[in-house]
Design a protein around this nucleic acid. Structure first.
Length: 159
DNA sequence: GCCAACGTTGGC
DNA sequence: GCCAACGTTGGC
């Protein structure tokens, strides 16, 4: 089983919206970046655990935990001219963009903010999220990073 | 294949 | 709203 982090603006895939979905399951559509797509398409497996990260908001940070419940399949919104992330070069016979289904598992007891994560940069090692001007919306997380962050969640002395 | 122009991301 | 960094596009 692998671990991941997926970024979204709260009003696109926010923890509240995800929890309101039937069975708390949602397709993670709209990824239009090749590196992120490749990870979703080639490496994400059913059962993988995912941190939900809120970006471009008052307090960017990790807010919840999701699970991959359906492996990559073509992102049909790329073919819909009305869709926000319509891609005119997309071809139904050779899909260019893919998505997975994720199920929201739980909200963290508190947001582990980017600011707090930065203070643990040393312990988190080579954490892609903390790399300067990193814009990747999907990234892998090591088992060590995963458990370290979960420990932060319940550590009242950290902040 | 180069590279300038452009659009997007995302923290601040 | 600003702006640095980055990815993509397209002319050459």
């Amino acid at each position: 089983m692998k671990y991941w982090l997926m970024k979204s603006e709260p009003d696109v895939f926010g923890s509240e919206q995800l929890q309101a979905m039937p069975k708390k399951i949602s397709a993670w559509d709209g990824v239009r970046n090749y590196q992120a797509r490749n990870m979703m398409r080639d490496e994400m497996k059913k059962g993988d655990q995912v941190f939900l990260y809120h970006s471009s908001c008052a307090e960017p940070g990790i807010v919840g935990i999701m699970q991959v419940v359906k492996e990559a399949y073509p992102d049909h919104t790329a073919l819909d001219p009305e869709a926000k992330y319509f891609d005119p070069k997309s071809d139904p016979d050779h899909p260019r963009w893919f998505m997975v289904d994720v199920q929201f598992k739980r909200q963290l007891q508190r947001t582990i903010s980017l600011q707090e994560l930065k203070q643990h940069a040393l312990q988190l090692g080579d954490f892609i999220l903390l790399k300067k001007s990193n814009r990747l919306s999907i990234m892998s997380v090591t088992a060590a990073q995963w458990s370290y962050i979960l420990k932060l969640e319940s550590d009242p002395t950290s902040r």
